[in-house]
Amino acid sequence: MKGFEDLKRRAKAGDAVAQRLLADTYDACFFVNLDREAFIKGLDFNRTTMRDPTHLPFLEQMATERLAKCGAVEGGAIVPMQIIRGWYAQAAENGDLAARLTDNALSQRKVDAAEAAQLLEDVLDSNDPAAVFAMGSTLVNNYTLTPGDPAEGLMTGELASTAWQVAACRMGYECEPTGVIMGNLCLLQNACAGEDYEAYLMRELRSDAQRELLQRRVAEILRLVEGQ
């Protein structure tokens, strides 16, 4: 696949964003290429257990696209997790902020309060949807609170991680119905309603009060990102 080979070429040439995206691509295909036969059998199980038959076409679309994509990634070969982690680490070293957050989480590296505060400032200043999403995905690993920390309201409490992710979606991160995030949810958890990530999260919340809380938390993050 020309797109994959071009991405790999740019990553090997030292492009930090391409290095992160290459790691993302390998990661999205890991559970497919690890055992394609088992993956296909899992799809058969998903078809028989899907509660809403109107969701089946979306499952078929996601499965077809993922199998084709992953068949073109290294010819369908298994890419070991250490290589995936290595590309995230390389991207982080070359300055990609989202990769830095991800690398910290994968290596289970706990940052101190000073570095955590700097990470938060960097993410808010970056205007980078990928970094904002990674902050939400790795919040536990990348933020250490000190007593009276002014960022406590952003980084702790109910729906903190989710709020960062939704903020990233609104900034343009790939949260659309056919993106990798929703593809993973469909293929792995049978969440195949054809909705985007924010709509999925809103539907999964238990009450209107939680939805209102999430909206407030997202608005606050976006306000800070925009420098208001």
Rank of each mutant, 00 (worst) to 15 (best):
residue 159 L to Q: 10
residue 170 R to M: 00
residue 154 L to M: 13
residue 82 Q to E: 15
residue 112 D to Y: 01
residue 13 A to G: 06
residue 180 V to K: 02
residue 139 L to K: 01
residue 154 L to V: 12
residue 90 Q to I: 07
residue 118 Q to S: 07
residue 87 W to L: 00
residue 1 M to G: 14
residue 118 Q to D: 13
residue 138 T to F: 00
residue 172 G to N: 10
residue 149 D to M: 08
residue 214 L to G: 06
residue 13 A to Q: 13
residue 227 G to R: 03
residue 62 M to H: 06
residue 79 V to K: 03
residue 180 V to E: 15
residue 96 D to Q: 02
residue 108 Q to G: 07
residue 143 Y to Q: 00
residue 10 R to A: 12
residue 138 T to E: 08
residue 213 L to Q: 14
residue 199 A to M: 10
residue 66 R to W: 08
residue 205 L to N: 03
residue 164 W to R: 00
residue 141 N to F: 08
residue 200 Y to M: 13
residue 173 Y to G: 08
residue 181 I to T: 10
residue 195 E to Y: 11
residue 92 A to H: 03
residue 26 Y to G: 05
residue 212 E to H: 06
residue 139 L to E: 01
residue 195 E to C: 10
residue 7 L to V: 09
residue 111 V to H: 08
residue 150 P to S: 02
residue 198 E to F: 09
residue 172 G to L: 03
residue 134 A to Y: 05
residue 114 A to W: 02
residue 101 L to T: 12
residue 98 A to R: 06
residue 109 R to G: 03
residue 212 E to L: 09
residue 210 Q to V: 14
residue 130 A to R: 05
residue 184 N to I: 05
residue 54 T to Q: 12
residue 158 E to F: 11
residue 120 L to K: 01
residue 73 V to F: 02
residue 218 V to D: 14
residue 34 L to R: 05
residue 179 G to K: 06
residue 193 A to I: 10
residue 181 I to C: 01
residue 93 E to Q: 12
residue 144 T to W: 00
residue 60 E to L: 15
residue 182 M to G: 08
residue 67 L to V: 06
residue 225 V to F: 07
residue 142 N to G: 06
residue 136 G to H: 05
residue 98 A to H: 04
residue 178 T to K: 01
residue 149 D to H: 04
residue 133 F to S: 05
residue 224 L to D: 13
residue 28 A to P: 12
residue 176 E to K: 07
residue 22 L to G: 01
residue 79 V to T: 06
residue 160 A to H: 13
residue 124 L to T: 04
residue 32 V to K: 04
residue 185 L to N: 03
residue 166 V to L: 14
residue 188 L to H: 04
residue 43 L to Q: 10
residue 95 G to N: 02
residue 141 N to W: 07
residue 219 A to R: 14
residue 88 Y to C: 05
residue 8 K to Y: 02
residue 150 P to G: 07
residue 85 R to N: 09
residue 136 G to P: 11
residue 151 A to C: 12
residue 103 D to Y: 00
residue 82 Q to I: 09
residue 81 M to T: 03
residue 23 A to T: 06
residue 185 L to K: 00
residue 223 R to W: 11
residue 89 A to D: 02
residue 162 T to E: 13
residue 227 G to H: 07
residue 208 D to Q: 14
residue 220 E to K: 13
residue 94 N to C: 02
residue 183 G to E: 02
residue 92 A to I: 00
residue 166 V to A: 05
residue 33 N to P: 14
residue 99 A to T: 05
residue 33 N to W: 03
residue 192 C to R: 09
residue 56 L to A: 12
residue 134 A to D: 03
residue 45 F to A: 08
residue 148 G to Y: 05
residue 15 D to T: 01
residue 65 E to K: 09
residue 172 G to Y: 07
residue 44 D to Y: 06
residue 70 C to M: 08
residue 195 E to K: 15
residue 153 G to V: 11
residue 142 N to P: 10
residue 110 K to N: 01
residue 40 I to N: 04
residue 151 A to E: 08
residue 122 D to E: 15
residue 40 I to G: 02
residue 125 D to I: 01
residue 55 H to M: 13
residue 128 D to L: 10
residue 42 G to M: 06
residue 76 G to R: 03
residue 83 I to F: 04
residue 96 D to P: 12
residue 177 P to I: 09
residue 136 G to S: 09
residue 210 Q to E: 15
residue 192 C to Y: 13
residue 125 D to G: 11
residue 214 L to H: 12
residue 228 Q to L: 11
residue 217 R to H: 14
residue 188 L to N: 06
residue 198 E to M: 09
residue 63 A to K: 02
residue 223 R to G: 12
residue 38 A to E: 14
residue 174 E to Q: 14
residue 55 H to S: 09
residue 52 D to F: 14
